[in-house]
Nucleic acid binder design. Structure first.
Length: 158
DNA sequence: GCCAACGTTGGC
DNA sequence: GCCAACGTTGGC
């Protein structure tokens, strides 16, 4: 199975890339996703070894702040079954967990973030989902071409 | 803080 | 199954 690429959004005041860095082994489970389209990606498509852009949404400015690796493929998000969690779902059970998550490990915090503005201005990224108006999906596919273009932007800043 | 875009809910 | 109302997301 070829390696695939993704973009995960998080609000920095909720879970920032620094928070990920502070986790043991710089690894965290990407829990709390409660959207079916994103759930399907987490459950079926996102596999160990895939690469992920860590994106800060609702930030000033918003943008890509780091690179992660998926270290565990989709498995049930048991936090949905915990009434004291941040995103409980009373209909989720061990037999029918409904919601899924993956584990991600931090590879790199970018010395300089790539703001959304830059992505929008970069040729070849016009079709990138995060650049589209009203793209709310919190877990998004990234094509290999888009990944390479963004990696070039990152290299250029170093 | 505003508001456009989107997803979900629920009455019918 | 339609669709209006509502809640949420997230850029600005």
């Amino acid at each position: 199975m070829a390696k695939r690429y993704w973009l995960f959004k998080s609000e920095p005041n909720c879970f920032s890339i620094e928070d990920l860095q502070n986790e043991p082994h710089q690894t965290a489970c990407w829990d709390g996703v409660r959207n079916y389209q994103a759930r399907n990606l987490l459950r079926d498509e996102i596999k160990k070894g895939d690469r992920v852009f860590f994106y800060h949404s609702n930030a000033k400015p918003p943008g890509i702040v780091g690179i992660c690796e998926v270290v565990r493929s989709g498995y049930p998000d048991y936090t949905a079954q915990d009434p004291t969690s941040d995103h409980p779902d009373p209909t989720a059970t061990p037999q029918n967990p409904i919601w899924y998550m993956v584990d991600v490990k931090l590879k790199e915090i970018l010395p300089e973030m790539i703001p959304l503005n830059t992505l929008k201005e970069t040729p070849g990224l016009e079709e990138m989902m995060v650049c589209q108006r009203g793209a709310r999906l919190s877990v998004q596919p990234v094509t290999p071409e888009q990944w390479a273009i963004v990696m070039n932007l990152i290299k250029r800043k170093k």
